[in-house]
Amino acid sequence: MENQPILSVRNLTKKFGGLTAVNNVDLDIYPGEVVALLGDNGAGKSTLIKCVSGVHSPTSGRVTFQGEDVNFSNPIEARDRGIETIYQDLALANNLDVAGNIFLGREKEKSYLGGLIRSLDDKFMRDRSAEALESLHVEIPSLKAPIETLSGGQRQAVAIARAVYWDAKLMIMDEPTNNLGVPEQKKVLELINALRDRGVPVILISHNLPDVFAVADRLVVMHRGQKVTEKKISDTNSEEVVQYMVGALDDTRKAEVVG
């Protein structure tokens, strides 16, 4: 199992009318690794990710998750299979408390009178939320306060704790350190490391190369819808990565020349 990829994308293409946003991309993600997905705006990384997380349906190609072909028709289906996406805008309800967010849409209920009356089991949800945060070494001042009172990093932690609690098999994080102060960025990188320690692979979409070099095991660079390179972090450096991002270097062209 260790050598089997948890997610495997083959020849994935996504077209919007005449525009090819993602062009024949392969991608493998193995358990317990952090893979950075890099590229300029419009390089196709978001579209690729949305094809994995069920927002878009690929025009052609195959997505295999945990050894099975999948074709999600919406993000909720993908999430139920264990693919959690943490969006830039966090997708939390700021007026709800931590437990309200972690259990949103999947609330635990108690029933009375044989199911006639059902109420929220707040104690259960609060206790489980505290455990999930604890397991990520996150401290939140009050679990009962609406999360609008939390800092950006703490909210990011709540979003990650939600994914961990619901047993995410693959995490996709879209620019998770954007709009955060430096100590908070550091905290989020620690959380990504904590996910790796638990064996949960992470796809990290980022523009921030220092972040990528600090936390990722591998990186994949996209340019104009194509995957232009895939390297181990130890085999490259930021100058080279930038060259790939702007299109000055391109492994697909090399392959064509060699072939």
Partner: peptide, 23 residues
């Protein structure tokens, strides 16, 4: 005390988040 109320708050707080959470 109910899911009904929780969803009401969640939609008012962040409708997009509620949709993404499966509400």
């Amino acid at each position: 005390r109910t899911k009904f109320g929780r969803y009401t708050y969640a939609i008012g707080g962040n409708e997009v988040a509620a949709v993404r959470a499966g509400v």
